[in-house]
Design a protein around this nucleic acid. Structure first.
Length: 635
DNA sequence: AAAAAAC
């Protein structure tokens, strides 16, 4: 989700704000002009902000005992003047009164009187945007979303909304939505936000780039503003976040944090990020200044929990982004520890939200441990990446890959976006392979950098910045960059080494073709990738891509049981609630066999392969297919 | 057998 979809709205909005800006996405898709409120036209974001003076704010900043013993009620009890939040009136609620379920000001949350809350809209991505100059028009066709297939299941599913105005999010949040230039909720937002506001648990499948970050952030922020929380203490330096958002990579956590900060600007809701590879002391200081929403990667969070610097006993909202990855082999034990073995309230006493673009059934089954009477939501997407991504597969022997890549890069060099060379993201299988390919590219005159888990966090972040800015328009990456990252202007994704799992392929190529722009994805296929032949051929066919005859031949040779196959029955990718599957594949349920009770470890018989095999057989994830056909009850 | 995620 990240920002892409929303960014596209933002981009088109800012373009439409500029008078008579040129066409729409190369004239390919009709673009509806995005409405920009008068007060936002021709103004820089920072000047839009209400003139809430530091002096006025600081007078309400002393949240006594915040994060400490006997902290008392959050939001400090008494009604406060509603600084910087003009005229929110809705039914019984007026102003910013914290009494009787009104909106809390939570002023102590972010401003301790020493400094103002940094305006996250001020110079956002300045470096990046400036190198690319004018914003491209995105060509998002909002009307196309009216017919989007949506499947929900569960008890008493709240009805979707069509506009942000219909949702009672509060004026401060509404103002940030305007600042973000979000005009209309995306389909996943339309459906998910009312569900979460109604207090329900949620498992949501919607494609990357469809606005998932906002879909879980808005109701969390809104909920925190509404409610009074009584805080208990466990230690003088322990903090008690109300919401926890977990993601599988550090960079993704940063990205979510950046987004969440925009959404929570001047709401008094404080967002803090914690991840490994960065000095912990700085993060501890941030935490001590108050935290309502904690965005984190699992390892660092466990560390903080073990140091008793963070307690989860006040958690009201738990969100897992890329939830299927978070419950995959590598992460599941840590997630269980965090969610089940620390002091987090159990399902039913917290709200749990799981979001991903892909959600294999076996993972759904695992995930249901964390949920209580949840609603399953699958949102298809018209004009998704596959419509915009041209996928190519080429047979390239291992030894020919580099020279073949060089050919592609030479061709790519000619293409420009706004005078800048377009960006190419090259995925490889291993960290070593990433380093060596980067080195080789640089030696051969191609400015490249690399991101992978053996680099320092500083190097990783530098690499990402350098790539985004166009300074090094080639990024060689491992799967650390496969999910979630929203990198504008990626014109070409090269699968130099194909992944073993078709879902990973889906996520990787989803780094391009974003924000309404077309993208190209090229894969190097050879004898090492035979197990992917079938699923790749199926996927490409379903996305109306040209499948080379040789790939079709390999695909037909591959056996269903051995390789990683999408289900047969063609043409349909559906997000399906596994609860609807009856006993159909219970027999395959490795976890249902009584093995799950053991504390992990010894019981995981050949778990990697076994699980992988189970997955691939039923990988009915919401892939990148151009639109998920959400079939109804029948299978 | 790979990547990721704490110090």
């Amino acid at each position: 989700m990240r920002t892409s979809w929303a960014d596209s709205a933002a981009n088109s909005a800012s373009e439409s704000a500029a008078p008579a800006s040129s066409g729409n996405n190369g004239g390919q898709r009709p673009t509806r002009a995005t409405y920009v409120p008068p007060h936002l036209r021709n103004r820089t974001p920072s000047t839009d902000l209400p003139a809430s003076s530091p002096a006025v704010q600081s007078q309400f900043n002393d949240r006594v005992g915040y994060g400490g013993p006997g902290g008392g009620s959050r939001g400090a009890g008494a009604p406060r003047p509603d600084y910087g939040r003009p005229g929110y009136v809705s039914g019984v609620r007026t102003g910013g009164s914290s009494v009787g379920g009104g909106w809390n000001n939570r002023s102590g949350g972010w401003d301790r009187g020493r400094e103002r809350e940094v305006n996250p809209f001020g110079n956002d991505d300045g470096e990046v945007e400036s190198t690319f100059g004018e914003q491209e028009n995105t060509g998002i066709n909002f009307d196309a979303y009216e017919d989007i297939p949506v499947e929900t299941s569960g008890d008493n599913v709240p009805l979707p909304v069509n506009t942000f105005a219909e949702i009672d999010l509060g004026e401060a949040l509404n103002q940030n939505i305007r600042r973000c230039k979000y005009v209309k909720p995306t389909p996943v937002q339309r459906n998910a936000i009312p569900i979460v506001l109604a207090g329900r648990d949620l498992m949501a499948c919607a494609q990357t780039g469809s606005g998932k970050t906002a879909a879980f952030c808005f109701p969390i922020i809104s909920g925190i503003m509404r409610e009074q929380y009584v805080q208990r203490s466990r230690g003088p330096r322990t903090v008690y976040p109300l919401a926890l958002i977990l993601s599988p990579t550090r960079e993704l956590s940063c990205q979510i944090h950046d987004e969440a900060r925009k959404f929570s600007y001047q709401t008094g809701v404080k967002v803090v990020v914690a991840y490994g590879g960065a000095p912990i002391n700085q993060q501890l200081r941030e935490l001590e200044r108050g935290v309502d929403i904690l965005v984190a990667t699992p390892g660092r969070l466990v560390d903080l929990l073990e140091r008793a610097r963070v307690s989860l006993q006040m958690i009201r909202y738990l969100a897992l982004d890329e939830a299927d990855r978070m419950l995959d082999m590598g992460f599941e034990p840590q997630i269980r520890k965090i969610v089940e073995q620390m002091d987090m309230p159990p399902p039913g006493r917290r709200q749990t939200m799981l979001f991903s673009a892909t959600f294999p059934k076996e993972i759904q089954r695992l995930a249901s441990d964390f949920l209580s009477n949840y609603i399953f939501l699958a949102v298809g997407r018209v004009g998704s990446s596959t419509d915009l991504i041209i996928q190519r597969v080429e047979y390239v022997h291992e030894t020919d890959k580099r020279s073949h890549l060089m050919d592609l890069l030479h061709a790519q060099r000619e293409t420009e976006i706004n005078g800048k060379q377009s960006l190419t993201l090259v995925f490889v299988e291993t960290k070593k392979g990433a380093d060596s390919l980067e080195h080789w590219l640089c030696v051969n005159g191609f400015p490249a950098t690399t991101i992978h888990g053996d680099r320092t966090q500083q190097e990783r972040e530098m690499a990402l910045r350098s790539f985004k800015s166009g300074k090094t328009p080639i990024l060689v990456a491992t799967d650390v960059a496969a999910r979630g990252l929203d990198i504008p202007h990626v014109a070409h994704v090269v699968n130099f080494d194909l992944p073993n799992d078709i879902d990973d392929y889906v996520h990787r190529i989803g780094r391009t073709g974003r924000a309404g722009k077309t993208g190209l994805a090229t894969a190097f296929f050879n004898e090492n990738n035979m197990s992917l032949a079938r699923s790749l051929a199926d996927l490409m066919q379903e996305a109306n891509q040209e499948v080379p005859a040789w790939l079709t031949r390999y695909a037909s040779r591959a056996s269903y049981s051995g390789g990683k196959n999408r289900r047969s029955g063609g043409g349909r990718f559906g997000g399906r609630d596994f609860r609807r599957e009856g006993s159909f594949n219970r027999g395959l349920d490795y976890y249902g066999g009584g093995n799950s009770g053991g504390g992990g470890g010894g019981g995981m018989v050949g778990s990697w392969q076994l699980r992988r095999r189970i997955w691939s057989g039923c990988s009915q994830c919401l892939g990148l297919a151009s639109h998920f056909i959400v079939d109804s009850i029948s299978h």
